[in-house]
Every structure is written in structure tokens, then in C-alpha cells.
Write a protein that binds this DNA or RNA. Sequence first.
DNA 1: TTAGTTAGTTCCTTAGCCAAACAAATGTCG
DNA 2: CGACATTTGTTTGGCTAAGGAACTAACTAA
Lengths: 403, 403
Amino acid sequence: MITSHNGPQPADFTDVRATNLAVVLRFVRENAPCSRADIAASTGLNKATVSSLVADLIDRSLLRETGLTEHRVGRPATMLVLDGSPYAAIGIEVNVDYITAVAVDLKGEELLNWRRSFPGGASSAGQAVVAMAALARRVVSRMTKEARQVLGLTVAVPGLVDVNGIVRVAPNLGWRDADLAGDLTKALRDPGFPVLVDNDANLAALAEHRFGPHRNAANLVYVTGEVGVGAGIVMDGRLRRGGQGYSGEIGHIELDPAGPTCRCGRRGCLEAVAGVGAILAHTAPDASPSELELEIDEVVRRARNGERDVLTLLEDVGRHLGRGMAAVANMLNPEVVILGGYYVPLAPWLVACAEEEMYGRVLAPGGGGCRLEVSTLGYGAAALGAAARVLDSVDSGRLPAQR
Amino acid sequence: MITSHNGPQPADFTDVRATNLAVVLRFVRENAPCSRADIAASTGLNKATVSSLVADLIDRSLLRETGLTEHRVGRPATMLVLDGSPYAAIGIEVNVDYITAVAVDLKGEELLNWRRSFPGGASSAGQAVVAMAALARRVVSRMTKEARQVLGLTVAVPGLVDVNGIVRVAPNLGWRDADLAGDLTKALRDPGFPVLVDNDANLAALAEHRFGPHRNAANLVYVTGEVGVGAGIVMDGRLRRGGQGYSGEIGHIELDPAGPTCRCGRRGCLEAVAGVGAILAHTAPDASPSELELEIDEVVRRARNGERDVLTLLEDVGRHLGRGMAAVANMLNPEVVILGGYYVPLAPWLVACAEEEMYGRVLAPGGGGCRLEVSTLGYGAAALGAAARVLDSVDSGRLPAQR
DNA sequence: TTAGTTAGTTCCTTAGCCAAACAAATGTCG
DNA sequence: CGACATTTGTTTGGCTAAGGAACTAACTAA
């Protein structure tokens, strides 16, 4: 569609067409199955225009006609649904100890979900590119076997990724200034689809915005609960990445000048008082990054058992988290803040405290309508969001060529 | 132009035209004087199209032909400049002890700037509406006398203004749930132009975005330095108001759980440690709100004299401010944070400390490219921004009818 | 004076939306 | 059972507005 962010772009007829194709595509995605008449009535587009747009989308295999309606007055309507069977979007998430690849169709239905262990924390960006390229090639060949065209590939990286897709710093992986997108494109040798890179929290936010239960919220924040704490910010319906792409770095907001020392060297960072590390520092101070999931399971078990010290610890962390989320809510006034990562299994013991603290500290009446929720997308949110990033560009009118 | 924020709107030819008219208008505003050929070359629009668009804009008195270029090879070019002489946009700012009204033409040049003392802090919203309506009527009649058509009026209010223009809470004015826009429209009896209401920090941010020295920054934050501290957030070239319109409430971000008590009742709010009130609490604890400007002048004088205790105080406040701005920069990664209000006269003693603190706490390398600057628009930034809000809607294609 | 250069207009083509008429397929009621 | 109503989707023609090419206009340089 015709957007104008950095200085308005002139428009012409092809933009109108692209906009309207996207409007129809999006409407069907959200209201399938529906008829051409429904689309015309709801979008305000003319029936004739809708017919033409739908024909175009069917030609591209983005829509498909399904049966007719029956038992209604008047001519039965031909119902339309998203097709997208001949397409796939690929998302890859690279992490400390594994790489995940997912592929989804246009509806966002998962076609595959492969996890492969990989010592990301002990590998260079170059080695990671080799591993990712190998995995991506396998995914692509599987998609090709299923007669699907790959629309794009996006990589989610836990770290600072600038607006050009350069990984500036990825502390847990030990990478600096790696042109992942460029190198991966080279490694895939003219893949015929765009390769993008973005921050994991940003992409997880995108996944929530497209697939999550709050998908109708135009303003939402996703918070990763890993060793690092980061946020992805959706405002007015789009990811907002800031001037250089480093928005959402809430992990190092200072909550207490007298707080504990953070791994960044400063004191009292949100990450240091409310990150997963802050929990494990008390329960399992010597845990290695690869044992994180197990250790969190152990914390959950102990909390379930009602162990007093663990419960107190989690309440404490919840309150700190709530203070951080109050800062987020005050600054951004989102409709919902979604807690992800390891905050999900810990939520039963965190959220009540966090919510209380947050609502107590948000200036706007009723917390500005901001709710604190728990992600339902699981640990693969970032990878799913990476695939969603590809679908987003289809939605904004960059349709695959006719076949 | 054809934007799509909350669900894409279908587009048709009139949208294309509106988009392109706005493109040309904006180009001339930023590059005047320039020729039709310049516009075509820079925007990518066809020469014929540009001619047609320019003719349209001249018909509406939005552009005007000025002289020809000379002494150049080839046919001399007819230069174009913004006209806008037959138009005016009105901004009104209501505050604790005065109401300001400004009117600007399309270029943003100030046509008038009236300040009228008004006990906002001791008046009801209803009384304020009466006063504003009286002032607005005088401004409108002056504009009419100058043969200008009023394009719109926006009111800047220090407080929480929701997306529908309802003033939810204005602590310094003591207002709650006042439908200022609606009541003012009624009081003006079918004014023939739109009346809008928004938060003062938001509008000041808009003023900076349009008129300030960083007007090319698509991501900027304006921070008000009054008794309250608030922010206006521009991301990706537009004001971002959050879900209900309450974004930018940074004054009550908690910087120190052990800090001093804030007037909101909580502890260690940014406002309490780095607001203007925090300074005056030390230098003039009994000052009334209406004496603020005088008291600040006194602080400036004492700082100029090199009084040790005042300098220490200001360094301290600067550091707290820097910590708050670090939170802003980490979360939003703007290209620039602009300090306004009373921070401007105090800047020589605040900014160095604030900057140092901020850069020390922003995670992104080089502070994510975020600079800390001082507003150059003066105390009238919000009123100016209110007028800019009107011009913005012209820019987005809502052109006045042909005359 | 002639050639070269740049500006802006005219005229034609084309894309693509809209309105209205129409065709198709069903239910309803006398 | 047939005329009519109702709804869907297509066809046709009209209109808006962008783009391209050719043309005119007005200057400088040699």
C-alpha cells in the first residue's frame, strides 16, 4: 500500500492497484471464507473492482474459490479463502545453543519446524552463516519438493540489528558488526527471494501482532524473558525500530541506582533485577546458558511445591518487572504488553505482582488501558515472527509474480 | 496521502491525486524557490503531471509563481514558492497562568502571537472554554480582516488528552474528563474549520518536527521542562500517541525507589528528581506556579555568578535527567532528544552532565546515534505545534477547496 | 545567426476505479 | 408451477489522472 514514512513518495496507478490488492488479501485473511460481495460491501470497493482484484489474486494463487453458499435467498455466493498453498515464508532464529527454522504458508500455518543444536555462543558469525545456509537450503529444497515458492527468509538474532540488517552487537553470541543478511544471501547464491535480518524481540512482536490473541491491537509491546530482556514495539500497526533500529532495548533501563551489578557493568538494570538471570543467580548460580530451560523447569517445580524462598524471589522479580513495564506503559501507552520467553512458564508467580506494581505506577487513569498478558506462541515466537516478517511484505502489496 | 495505519483503506484516483499534490506541496515547502522541472526531477513525477499538480495548487493559492531564473543556459525557469497568504492556522496553548494564541501561514511564519493572562490553575474547564473561545474569535476576526481563511484550530493542554481529544486529567489545571474540542466547537458556533485538542508535549514535538533544526529527523522526542515533565514522541515521521493517546508520560518513570516523594505520591519519579520543581524545591521552596519564570531567571543568574551550591544542584539534576533520557533512548532510539521549556535557559549547566550520563547508559554503540539537544523554539513551542498540527492535515492531502 | 540547452505545454495512450445495466442462480408467494 | 424478488458476479462504458513523446518557448554560446 502507499505508505509515506520518510518523506512522501509520489503515487501512481500501480500503487492504487497494489493497495487494493493488499486490502482484499487482508480482508480475506481476516474474514475467510467470504464472497466477493462481502468484500465489496465491507471495504467500500466497487463490486466490479473487487471482481478484478480477486481474479488477479486467484491468478497468483493467493486466493482460491471454495464451495457455494446454499439455502439463502438470491444467487448463491462463491466463497473465497486464502490459498497460498504454492508459497512458503521461512523464519530462522539463531540462539546460544540452537538454530530454529520454521516455514509457514500464507495463512501462517506451520509447514515445518526444525530445531538443530548449534553452539551459537561459541561460534563466529561466519560459522553461523554456514550453518544457517545449510539449514535454509534444506528447508528450501523441502518447500520446492512440495511445489512451494519461497517468498523470503528472515533471520531473528538476539542483539542489536541496525536498520540495514547489520548485526551490530549480539552479546550472547559474541558477534559484532556482522552483515548477516549480505553473507547469507551470498552463501545461498542468488536465492531468488529476499533475505532479511532483525532483532528477535522485534520479530516476536510481529508474530504477536499477526497471530497472537491480541492481533487487533495496533499498539503492543512484546518483552523477551531470556538472560537478556528486550522489547519489540508495534505502534500504529507497524513495527517501530527507531532511527537506527535499536528501539526496545529496555533491558538496561536503570530501575535502582543501588541495585545489583548487571553483566553490562552498570547497576540496577531491569535485566539485572527482573531478568531470568536474576532468578537463576539465586537458585542455580553456576548454570550454563545451555541449561537454562532445565533450570527454569526446576524453578517452576519448586514454586509449585510452594517453597517459600522461591516464591518470595519470584514475587520480588515480578515487582521489579512491573516497575519496568510501568516505564514502558507510561512512555508508549500500548494496549497490551506481552511477556514472552521464560516469563511464560513463570507467569503464574510473576504476573499478579507485576500487574499490581505496574498499575500502581502508570500515570494514566486505568493504566491507560494497558494490560499485561502472557505470550501463547511458545518459545518459537521469534522464528514465527521472522516468517511473519516475510508475509508482511506480501501484505503491503509486494505480491509474488503471476504464474 | 494514502496511509494505512489501522487497517488499510482502499485507494482510488483521488487518493493518488491527493498524495501527489501533497508531495509537490511538501517539496516546494522544503526547497523553495524551485521550478516545475526541479520538482519533476526530484520527485520522479512526470513533467506533465507536475504541471497539472502545480496548476491545481496555484488555483488554490497554495503556491505562487515568482520571478524567472536568469543567466543560465536554456529557457529560464519559473520559480515557485509557497503562497498561503490567504490561509492561516491557529494554535492555542492553555496553561496555569496564561493562554497563548498564535497564527501562522502555510510557511509557518508567525502572523500573530497573543498572550493573555488567565488563571488556568484556578478555573474550570468550562471557564477556560469561554476564555479560549473569546480569544479564538478575536484571532479569527483578525485573520478574516487580513482576508485569510482559517484552516483549523488546535489547543495544546498540559495533561492527558485521549485520542478523541477529551482532556482526561490536567493536574496543574485541575481538570478531569473535559470535552474541550466539543465544547469549544459549540462555543464557536459552527466555526467552519476543525477544532482539535492534544497534549502540549505532543504538539511541541510536532513543532520541532516541522520547524526545528532537526526537522529532517523522522524519529525525535521532545521533553517539556515545566513543573511536570512530559514527552512527545515522533517515530517514523509521525506523532505516535499510543493506544489511548497517553504516550510520552515519562515524568513518572521511577528512577530511584529511594528517591524523594513526587507530587503524584510515588517516590523517585523523573519529575521529582529532574523536573523544574526539583530545582526550585532547593532554591525557592515557596514559589507559586505563576512565579516560575522569575524564579528560574534567578537560578540562571546565580549559576552565572558561579554559586557553588546552585551549580552542584544543576549538575545533580542534569545527571538525573540524563538517566531518564537514557531510558528514552534505550526504548525508542530516536535520532535526537530535544529539551524544551525551562530546560532551555538552564541548559548550559544541565546538558553536559545529562549527556555524559545518557551516553554512559545507552546500550547501543554510540548511544544509538541519539543526540541530546536544546529546543530553539522558545516557550511558545506547544502553541506553534498546535498550529503545525493544522498544517499537517493540509500536508496529508486535506487541501482547502478551490477558490 | 545558428546550434545547443533547458523549461514547460499539448496531445495521446493507458491503467484502473466506478456506476449502471445485465445475466445467473436461487427462494418465495400466489 | 410460474412470476417475481433477491442476491451475486460480470460486462460495458465513462471518467480521472498519470506517463511518454513531440512540440513550443526562451534563453546562452559560439
